[in-house]
Design a protein around this nucleic acid. Structure first.
Lengths: 351, 351
DNA sequence: AGGTACTGTGGGAGCGCTCCCACAAGTGAT
DNA sequence: ATCACTTGTGGGAGCGCTCCCACAGTACCT
C-alpha cells in the first residue's frame, strides 16, 4: 500500500469501531448488520454495508469467538492413521459431501487424525480447549472412548457408522445389512452355490451388519449357512489374502466370494490367481465400497456402493442441528437423529 | 436461557486468573509458565504447574489469538476439486508428512479446498480474516492468483512445486527433471528405441520439467528427439487415453511410453490393450507417482516415486521458519528456501 | 555507600468483538 | 392526554488472554 499516512492509530485491519464511525452509527448497530439481525432499519443497514465495503472490513474471528464463546469451526475426526484414511475412498467422498454442505455456511472444517496415542492425546487437549463447536466422527470402533469424552465435554457430535444398535450419538449410516444381502442375492442369482464371505473387522458395527445380510440372504434362499464359509478379515489387502487362503483350504470347491471391502477383495483376487482360479469363471468375486480399486481391478470388480457423499452431507446437517439446539436436548426423540441410506450394487465383470 | 441468576462467574472452564489465585501468584506469572518463558523461578513454576494440573486448566485459544494476534493454525490449501486431491495419493502422502511434523508443535492444520469459484471466494475471505498464521500451497498452476493474494496479505506461505524457475515463494519440490530422465534412461537400457511421452498439464512446472528430462535423456543417449512422440495429457485417465490414441496413430511402431502420471498410464494401458498391444512385450509402460494404481495395475506399473511425505515435512519446516521470522524478511538469501528432493524409479513388470 | 545491572514478579491496559441494558421515538389503545 | 408496547439504536461491560511497564529483591561492580 502506498503512503498510509495518518490513518489513526491503526495501520492494521479495520475494526467494528472504525466501520461504525464511518457509517455514523454505533458499534452495536454494525454488529447487528454483520450478524444479520432483523432489528435494523433499511437505511441504516445500507449505510453500514457501504462502510463495510469501503473499508474492506472483515470480522476478527478470534474476537468474535472470545466474546460469543463459539468458534464457527467443526472438526472431522478420523481415528485411524492417515494412511488408511486415504487408502479407502470412503473418507474422501464423505469429505466431499461435508465440504459441499459446509460451503453453504460460514463454518470452517478441520481435519483431525487421531491414529496414534500421541495424536489422541493432542485431540483430547484440543477438544478440552473447545476449539470446535462440533465434531464429526468417522469410522469409530466399538470400544473407542472418544464418544464418551465428547459427551462428557458436552460437545455436539455426529457419528458415521453407529458403534452398535444402541448408539447414543446421532448417526448416519448406509444400509450395511441390505448391502450384504444384495451382494449375496446377486451371486445366488448368478447360479453360485458355495458363497464365502470375508468380513471386515468385527468391532466395526457395519462389518457385522454385512455378515448378517450375508447370512440372512443365504438362509432366505433356503441355503444352509456354514460358519466355515465366513472368515474374518481386517479391511486390509493382506487380511484379504490371509482370509482367502483359509477359505480355499477349507472349501476348495467354493464358487463365489463376497468380500467386506474392495481392498480385501483385491487381496483375495491375488490368492485366487496364484492358485489358478479364474475370475469369474471359477470363482465370482464381489467387493464393497465401489472404490477406484474396484474399477481398475482385472477383471473389474462388482461392488456394493454406498452413497457416501450423501452421508457426509447428512452428517453435517445433523451436526448443525445439534449445535443449533445446544440445550438440555433431553426432549427430542431419537428417531430423526438416526439416518440410514440405501446402497446399490454395481455389477461388473468379476461376477 | 433458564434463570442464569448469580452465575457465580465460575461454572465454566478455569481461567488464567483462577490458576493464578490457586497458585498464589499473579496472572503474568502463570502466562509465563504456560508459554515456557525462562524468566520464572523453579519453585514458582512448580506451584503453577500444580495448580494447572489440579484445575485441569486449558488455555482459551480465542483469547490468546485475540491478544497475541496469532492463531496457531496453518492451512493446507488445495486449489483443486476434492476429487482430484484424493484420486492421487500425492496429496495424502504429503498430508501425512505435514501431519507428522506438525504433531511436534502446538499448531493446528486446516485443510481447505479451493476448486470452485465459490470456494476460492470463501478462501479469500478466510485469508483476509487472517485466520491462519501461514499457508501451505499444493499443486498450484502457473497463472494462479493465490500466491499473489497471499503475499499481498503478508501471510507466510510455502509452495510445493514452484510455478516456474522464477518462483518467489519458498518451495519444496521433487526432482521432476531427474525423475523424467530416469524413466527414459530405464526404458533405453531395456532396449526400447521409440519412446513416447504423455505429459501432464504443461501449466504445471513439474510436468514441464519431466518433459525436459525426457528430452535430455534421449538426446544424451544420441537419439533424435521427435516432437511427434510427445503428446499433452492433463493428469486424468481420460487424458491418458486420448494422448495414447494420438500417439499410436502417429507412431504405430512405438515400443515404449513414459506417462507423466500413473493415472494417465492407466488410461494409456486401456488403449494399448484395446488395440491388442501387450505390455511389456510390445510396449513398455512407465508411470509417475508410484501410486496404489501402479501396484494394482495389470501388469504392475513401473513408476517414478517421489519422496512426498518427506516433501510435506520439509514444507512445514520451511513454513514454520517463515512464520518465526515474520519480519521484513528481505534479508535472507533464497538458497535455503528452495528444497529439491531426489526421486526413485520403482521398476515393475510393465517395462 | 552508592550505582548499575540483572532476575523475578504483579497487574494495568488493551485486543475486537457480542451481549444486553437503557433509552429515544413512534404507534395505537384507552 | 396518558399509558403500554414496539422498533431501532448507542454504548458499557465484559470475554480470557498477552504485552509491557513498574518495581522489589539480589548481585556485583565502583
Amino acid at each position: 500500500m502506498a503512503g498510509h499516512g495518518a490513518r489513526g492509530r491503526s495501520g492494521g485491519r479495520p475494526t467494528l469501531e472504525e466501520v461504525a464511525a464511518r457509517a455514523g452509527v454505533g458499534r452495536g448497530t454494525v454488529s447487528r448488520v454483520i450478524n444479520g439481525s432483523p432489528r435494523v432499519s433499511d437505511t441504516t443497514r445500507a449505510a453500514v454495508e457501504a462502510a463495510v465495503a469501503e473499508l474492506g472490513y472483515v470480522p476478527n474471528t478470534a474476537a468474535r469467538a472470545l466474546a460469543a464463546n463459539r468458534t464457527d469451526a467443526i472438526a472431522l475426526v478420523v481415528p485411524e492413521p492417515e494412511t488408511r484414511f486415504f487408502a479407502e475412498p470412503y473418507f474422501s467422498d464423505m469429505l466431499r459431501g461435508v465440504g459441499a454442505e459446509l460451503s453453504e455456511t460460514e463454518m470452517q472444517l478441520l481435519l483431525i487424525f487421531a491414529g496414534s496415542d500421541r495424536e489422541r492425546q493432542r485431540l483430547a487437549q484440543y477438544l478440552a480447549a473447545h476449539r470446535v463447536d462440533g465434531v464429526l466422527l468417522v469410522s469409530v470402533h466399538a470400544d473407542d472412548p472418544l464418544p464418551d469424552l465428547l459427551s462428557q465435554l458436552e460437545i455436539p457430535a455426529v457419528i458415521s457408522g453407529p458403534r452398535s444398535e444402541a448408539e447414543t450419538l446421532p448417526s448416519v449410516d448406509s444400509d450395511n445389512y441390505g448391502g450384504g444381502r444384495s451382494a449375496v442375492e446377486h451371486l445366488l442369482s448368478r447360479g453360485r452355490t458355495l458363497i464365502a464371505h470375508i468380513t471386515g473387522r468385527l468391532d466395526v458395527y457395519g462389518a457385522q451388519r454385512r455378515v448378517d445380510g450375508y447370512r440372512d440372504a443365504l438362509r432366505d434362499a433356503g441355503h444352509e449357512v456354514r460358519e466355515s464359509l465366513v472368515e474374518q478379515g481386517d479391511f486390509t489387502e493382506e487380511g484379504g489374502r490371509r482370509a482367502m487362503t483359509e477359505l480355499l483350504a477349507r472349501h476348495p470347491d467354493l464358487d463365489a466370494v463376497f468380500a467386506g471391502s474392495d481392498v480385501m477383495a483385491a487381496g483375495a483376487r491375488q490368492v485366487l490367481r496364484e492358485v489358478g482360479r479364474r475370475i469369474p469363471e471359477d470363482v465370482a468375486l464381489v467387493g464393497y465400497d465401489d472404490s477406484a480399486i474396484a474399477r481398475h481391478m482385472d477383471p473389474p470388480l462388482t461392488s456394493v456402493r454406498q452413497p457416501i457423499e450423501e452421508m457426509g452431507r447428512r452428517m453435517l446437517d445433523l451436526l448443525l442441528t445439534e449445535i443449533a439446539d445446544r440445550r438440555p436436548a433431553v426432549s427430542r426423540g431419537l428417531e430423526r437423529r438416526r439416518v440410514v441410506l440405501a446402497t446399490e450394487l454395481e455389477v461388473r465383470a468379476s461376477s
